[in-house]
Amino acid sequence: MNRAVNGLPKGVLHLAENDQKFSLVRYAPSVETQYFVQHYWIVRWDLRGQEPYKQTVIAHPNVNLVVEENGTRIYGVGRSTSVRIVKDHGWVVGIKFKPGGFYPFLGAPVSHLTDSTATIEEVFGIESGPLESFILSAPDDQSMVSRIEAFLAERLPEKDPNVSLVHELVMTFRDDRRVIRVEDAVRLTGMNKRTMQRLFDRYVGVSPKSVIKRYRIHEAAMRIDQGEVADWLDLSTELGYYDHSHFIRDFKSVVGMSPEEYRQK
């Protein structure tokens, strides 16, 4: 049985409002698939009798395989926010691969999927319809997760040591507030800058700079949504920025508006 994983869904903008529109449950992968998979997830919503809702997301540096009725696809990493219109009621189930974890399945640079999608047939050679029916007809969430994991477990590639390396680098970018620029990452890891950039193009799909920036903006947006921000200078300092103007530029470049405009909206 896959264990449920709790935690706030960083990257979903206007989280407090979104929390009333949908539910998200995440499940840890089994030992068999955990080398490649970060977690499995299920989103449910019920907006019957309500207006459709526009959900905006800042993508994590992960490829996702999303199973939904008549819409199953593999999503690469987006370089900016993405918007999904949620209406009526339904559910989707997905696999969130570790950063770098999808490359062994794809066998080509993951940057080919950046800002794009692929079908199940293009990558795994099977039609999506029967897979959708099998997974989405499961009687409960745990069964859906078990079915989608069984699908993946039957198709596991050889372990690529670069997957572990890339995942470790990305976690460093996420957790170490000293990493604001690629040069900071180079200094901390000792890896050549060009080598790091090539590695991320092949395994992640976006640049190290993009990954570093989006994690800081994820944190900032969540803090704003929770009403924890009193001063932009204090927030930028806590996130590791040397000056708050740099933080504001980064926020605006990803979200499309300044932090103050986001808070007011």
Rank of each mutant, 00 (worst) to 15 (best):
W91P: 06
G94M: 09
K96E: 11
K96L: 09
F97N: 04
G100C: 03
G100I: 01
G101M: 08
F105L: 10
L106K: 05
A108M: 15
P109D: 11
P109F: 10
V110E: 01
S111N: 12
S116H: 13
A118M: 08
A118Q: 05
T119K: 03
I120N: 09
E121R: 11
E121M: 11
E122I: 06
E122K: 14
E122S: 15
E122Q: 14
V123H: 11
E127S: 15
G129V: 11
G129E: 12
P130I: 04
I135V: 06
I135K: 01
S137G: 06
A138D: 10
P139E: 15
D140I: 14
D141F: 09
D141E: 15
S143Q: 15
V145M: 00
S146W: 01
I148F: 01
A150Q: 02
A150M: 04
F151P: 00
L152Y: 00
L152N: 00
L156W: 00
N162D: 14
S164Q: 15
L165E: 11
H167T: 10
L169Q: 02
L169A: 03
V170T: 01
T172V: 09
F173V: 08
R174A: 04
D176M: 02
I180C: 08
D184T: 07
A185M: 12
R187G: 15
L188R: 11
L188A: 14
L188T: 12
T189C: 07
N192H: 06
R194N: 08
R194D: 06
M196W: 01
Q197K: 13
